[in-house]
């Protein structure tokens, strides 16, 4: 079993690749910042779990996906949708509960889907989406395509019983599923140390013989290389793989988070030393890239996209009352 503590791969990327990752991570960061602002202004109600700090995970994994590979995740899902290529306007308008949202405002922050982008949600119940990810893996095998189900969940969800049911089935039937545990260290306000008997979450599949790997989830290139290994393993028919992405969320669990479970210093330290976007900039400069204007240009482009999304999300009409009763049955 390859329960390596880290990927033994050549961690380098081309400047062109890094610029794409930089752009995609920046889109998520700025989108989420804007979502946080709209929430503060009262335009978004209910739940809103921001992905800021974890951008390298989805962007790195996206780089190893092929057309047809599915993505499914829990409730901190905005980053996954943007990484999948879903329209920021539709995502933001779902947050504001408008007609133009991906679910016409009926799903909200945690519940969006896209058949076109093979995005299977957006699920608000912690851990409940993981057996669905295994079902997608089964469907791939049944249809004899070579697609892989990327099944994301968090450190908190990794304690749910149904995860283990799902892992057992995935390994028993050698299904093409990559279990991606985004270990951002805190299940709401409970740290991994206070809730996991074994804090090495890459070993969650060990009882079933599923290989696991711990990955620096703050480094997009490390994520990509680990992801490549796991996805290839699954695609070749060798069964599921567990990737533990060591990552960190800068913001609260949701918008109502007193943040008493960690110190300001801890958050600042991670931001200064491990920020995935800064790490990407460092990699660019190690590659000899020094075109500040190009980065500024990307920044400007992203700002315009996010502004467009926010404007759309505020201008789109509220869903009509009769929408309450549609889409329940065929």
């Amino acid at each position: 079993m390859a329960d390596d503590a880290s990927a033994k791969t050549n961690l380098s990327a081309t400047t062109e690749e890094l610029l794409k990752y930089y752009r995609d991570m920046l889109l998520i960061r700025r989108f989420e910042e804007r979502a946080g602002q709209l929430y503060g202004m009262g335009h978004i109600g209910g739940f809103c779990h921001l992905y800021i700090g974890q951008e390298a995970v989805v962007v790195g994994m996206e780089a190893v996906k092929k057309d047809g590979d599915q993505t499914i995740t829990g409730y901190r899902d905005h980053g996954h949708m943007l990484a999948c290529g879903m329209d920021p306007k539709g995502v933001m308008a779902e947050l504001t509960g408008r007609e133009g949202g991906y679910s016409k405002g009926k799903g909200g922050s945690m519940h969006m889907f896209s058949k076109e982008k093979e995005f299977y949600g957006g699920h608000g119940i912690v851990g409940a989406s993981v057996p669905l990810g295994v079902g997608l893996g089964f469907a791939n095998r049944y249809r004899e395509n070579d697609s892989v189900s990327l099944t994301y969940f968090g450190d908190g969800a990794s304690n749910q019983g149904q995860i283990f049911e799902a892992m057992n089935m995935a390994q028993l039937w050698k299904l093409p599923v990559v279990f991606i545990i985004e270990n951002n260290q805190y299940a709401m306000g409970t740290s991994v140390k206070r809730s996991h008997s074994d804090t090495h979450l890459y070993r969650r599949g060990a009882a079933f013989g599923i290989p696991g790997m711990e990955v620096d989830g703050m480094d997009v290139v490390a994520v990509r290389e680990a992801g490549r290994q796991a996805v290839e393993h699954a695609r070749k028919g060798e069964g599921p793989y567990v990737l533990e992405m060591k990552t960190y969320r800068y913001r609260g669990h949701s918008m109502s988070d007193p943040a008493k479970y960690r110190t300001r210093e801890e958050v600042d330290h991670i931001r200064e030393t491990s920020d995935p976007i800064k790490r990407c900039e460092q990699r660019l400069s190690e590659n000899g890239f020094s075109d500040e204007d190009q980065l500024k240009g990307i920044d400007k482009e992203i700002k315009a996209i996010v502004k467009g999304a926010a404007d759309f999300a505020l201008e789109s009409p509220e869903p009509a009352a009769d929408q309450l009763f549609t889409d329940i049955y065929a």
Partner: peptide
């Protein structure tokens, strides 16, 4: 299947979203 009712029904849902009829 294993004795895993949550896994059975959850996997069935995943299959069904992909177009199977479990």
């Amino acid at each position: 299947t294993p004795i895993s009712e949550s896994g059975i029904i959850g996997a069935a849902i995943g299959m069904a979203t992909y177009g199977l009829r479990p």
